[in-house]
Simulated assay, not measured.
Amino acid sequence: MRVLFLVWSSYPSDRIYADPSVFYRCFHPAEALRRRGMHTSVMHFSTVDPEELSDYDRIIFFRPQFSDKFLELHSTARQLGLPCVASYDDLFFDIEMLRQSNFRGLAVNQHKILASRPYNYAQAMYFFDRFISSTDPLADRIRAALGAAEVHVQYNAVSDEMLYLARMCTETIDREPLRLGYFAGGASHAPDLMAIAPYIAPALAEAGAEFFCVETVEVPDVIAKACKVTTTRRMSYAEMIRAYATCCVTIAPLHMNPFTISKSGIKYLEASLVGAATVATPIPDIMRIADDRLIPVETEEGWYDGVRQALAMPHGEAITRHQQERIRERFSTSVEAERLVKFLETVGS
């Protein structure tokens, strides 16, 4: 089977690998399918000549947006008799749900956001009958929008390469015993950190802990005044795993609403790779993969106790090895690839 992942991303066409969504939703499954003997490609839609589609058996449109180019590619695929699937990892195609996201409250170009989300997503969505979703709640939203839709849930997972890198990092990097890390995916998560800052700051101060943060968000003053703060620039995936390995605890706060309920729990898998405990908002997908190293917090006030509890949890080589083996057996891209192949075979039948 030959599978093409057609990508719509705001990243430059020659840097789509740096887009976290494309990394997890396209490159990871493409590599896992390749290991099973299939031919796969990941390409930015703007670089694809419609004639190239004939080289493939299945086309996966990742986050497709309606445009003349989209119509040309989709129409060509249909003329060639190629099964087409739309893949989503966020609820961008629902206008009401987008209003509940953090985008509206940020000092960003609102016209740019609304020009591409959700109208173009929604218009493209209605060209498909088959879908790939990153979580069960997101699959439910797709079915609610398109009652007859066939939806395969392909969970975010960890690749063999990430597991290998995590093992190398945990064997060679000393963990900071009281370092709490926050690895936000982007500036839209600044309000999430701001909401819990008054509650985690005293917990950090009492424990004499350090707050480690990637510079995708600003550190609230209440945290900066309470404890040692270390920030770092945006990192590559390899650098990110190394940074995770220095933390004993990570946090994954979200403002719970129908938009965030559809999000992935990948942040806990990233932390588990290096044996770190995590305090998190209990969105459904993170609870799907949770074990006793995850502390769910349902209220803002609960973050104080959650962080205190996590900072007191044990760490060590045996715990890390157990977490890595658990991920390999249950949450690896190899496991997800086997399920994806069955779905793609059904799509082509």
Rank of each mutant, 00 (worst) to 15 (best):
G105I: 07
E300N: 06
S264K: 02
E317T: 15
S116P: 05
D94I: 07
S54L: 10
I223R: 01
M313N: 08
P191D: 04
M256R: 09
A276V: 01
P64N: 01
R321I: 11
A139S: 13
A280P: 05
C213Q: 06
V108S: 14
Y182Q: 01
A207R: 14
T346G: 05
R58F: 15
E300D: 11
V297R: 00
D136A: 10
S67G: 05
I295A: 00
Q123T: 14
A18Q: 14
R141L: 06
S46C: 02
M235S: 07
R326K: 11
L344E: 06
R99C: 09
R175K: 15
A205C: 12
S21Q: 12
L53C: 03
R143P: 04
K69P: 09
D174R: 13
R179M: 13
P83D: 10
A201E: 06
W303D: 00
F93S: 04
F128S: 09
E51I: 09
Y237P: 08
E150F: 06
A145I: 05
E176N: 07
K69H: 14
P12L: 03
A224I: 05
P253Y: 01
P12D: 04
L311K: 00
A86G: 09
E301D: 11
A201D: 06
R143V: 11
P296E: 00
Y17T: 11
S46D: 01
